[in-house]
């Protein structure tokens, strides 16, 4: 707090951002569905990065020396764990508010993360490159998938990986992810997802391939209402993830 007070940001704004940060990071709050969803993704992402770069997950900071980009980082729910694991993290979000919130929270957590209010396109055009690019719940919101994935792909270093998580364009996804999650359960605000903007796995794979990336694995993430838990599965009808690699030189 005291540090923020010394900057030119006015105190009311800081107050607002810290309230928002508390909201983002409250596992029982508005972002509860994301907190429920995050552990299964986190485990998969951690294991894949460790395998690809031959890191020991039992080491204190296994991702030391890896440069990672988290596109659409929001409040930093994935950026912070990656930074704790030792990665040099750039968190990008088009929303300046999200970035302020994420900055505030990472400072509270004592983590160093390079948060930037910018877009993947701008980062790519600036020539930034990364060992790992995380692209979680973003492609369903962009207008030109091929261009977006091209730009993201350009930032992946040879031998590096990109992980994309999104929602399939199926009737089941319409029923569960839009009608179910937004209207019935009200997990997400109405209008979060537009059906026509959802992306099918083969469309995503085509875009990845166009960007020079090879799909390594594709898997579904499904919700078990009895256990109130998300888990990995082979069912990619609703939520799914794609792991793609850029061949080494």
């Amino acid at each position: 707090m005291s540090e923020a007070a010394r900057t030119t940001i006015d105190n009311q704004e800081v107050e607002r951002f810290s309230r928002l940060a508390a909201e983002w990071w409250n596992p029982k709050g508005k972002f509860k569905p994301l907190h429920k969803f995050n552990p299964v993704r986190l485990e998969y992402i951690r294991n894949q990065i460790a395998e690809r770069f031959d890191r020991d997950i039992r080491a204190p900071r296994p991702f030391e020396g890896l440069r990672l980009l988290d596109i659409g980082c929001g409040g930093g729910l994935m950026s912070e764990p990656m930074a704790r694991l030792g990665a040099e993290v750039v968190g990008a979000d088009a929303s300046a508010t999200n970035i302020e919130v994420a900055k505030l929270h990472s400072a509270q957590s004592g983590l160093t993360i390079d948060y930037r209010a910018t877009t993947a396109e701008a980062l790519a055009d600036a020539g930034e490159t990364f060992d790992v690019v995380l692209n979680l719940e973003v492609v369903e919101h962009v207008s030109d998938i091929e261009l977006f994935i091209d730009k993201c792909g350009a930032m992946v270093r040879p031998g590096g990986i990109m992980m994309v998580a999104t929602i399939n364009r199926t009737l089941k996804a319409l029923g569960l992810a839009i009608i179910g999650a937004e209207y019935v359960l009200q997990w997400l605000p109405r209008g979060t997802h537009q059906f026509s903007k959802l992306v099918k796995p083969d469309e995503l794979e085509a875009a990845l391939s166009h960007a020079g990336l090879r799909t390594v694995e594709k898997l579904g993430v499904t919700y078990n209402p009895l256990a109130d838990r998300w888990g990995r599965s082979s069912d990619t009808d609703v939520n799914y993830m794609v792991l793609a690699e850029k061949p080494a030189l």
């Binding site: 596992p27 485990e43 951690r46 764990p81 957590s109």
Partner: peptide, 15 residues
């Protein structure tokens, strides 16, 4: 939790 880079004191971890 620590091996996943999670916050070890977070309520959802402790739950």
């Amino acid at each position: 939790a620590d091996r996943h880079g999670r916050d070890i004191g977070a309520l959802d971890v402790l739950e």
